[in-house]
């Protein structure tokens, strides 16, 4: 019984990891690609980590919960990196299928300066 649950968790996790990366390869513009890895992959790895937690906890060497730490870490950091990537993409004005709201483009003077700076590759 336990083995069935474990196998199911592992397969679901691997499948979601794969689908997340498939989205990265397959979707058409950067902003939609962003969704694949940040969601599906996070859940996939989370599921794998739960499987590992169950596996090592039921081997009779005591509870093993430190996988929880990796899961927690991934769930906290995935949205942060997604947000930064989206912000960088808006800043660089990448091609988007959906119309981009006007206000996001250089409404902040400091960002406008940064845009001019990054037009030429920084030295050093």
């Amino acid at each position: 019984m336990l083995e069935i649950i474990l196998s199911a968790l592992i397969l679901i996790g691997a499948l979601f990891t794969f689908i997340g990366s498939l989205g990265l390869a397959r979707l058409e513009d950067f902003y939609t690609r962003l969704h694949g890895p940040t969601k599906a992959t996070t859940l996939g790895v989370g599921s794998l980590l739960i499987a590992s937690m169950v596996y090592f906890s039921t081997r009779g060497e005591g509870l093993s919960l430190h996988e929880l730490l990796v899961t927690l870490f991934l769930f906290i950091t995935a949205p942060v990196s997604a947000h930064l990537l989206a912000k960088a993409a808006l800043h660089l004005r990448l091609r988007s299928i959906a119309p981009v709201p006007q206000r996001t483009e250089a409404s902040d003077p400091r960002q406008a300066n940064a845009a001019e700076d990054s037009a030429t590759p920084p030295q050093g």
Partner: peptide, 28 residues
């Protein structure tokens, strides 16, 4: 574009975590 490559790198990192966890289960 550059953000695409960064996103791909980030995904590779997360996939590596998945691979290591699997390896842990495989080798016990």
């Amino acid at each position: 574009d550059q953000p695409d490559r960064i996103l791909a790198l980030d995904t590779l990192y997360v996939n590596t975590v998945a691979l290591l966890v699997l390896l842990g289960i495989h080798l016990g």
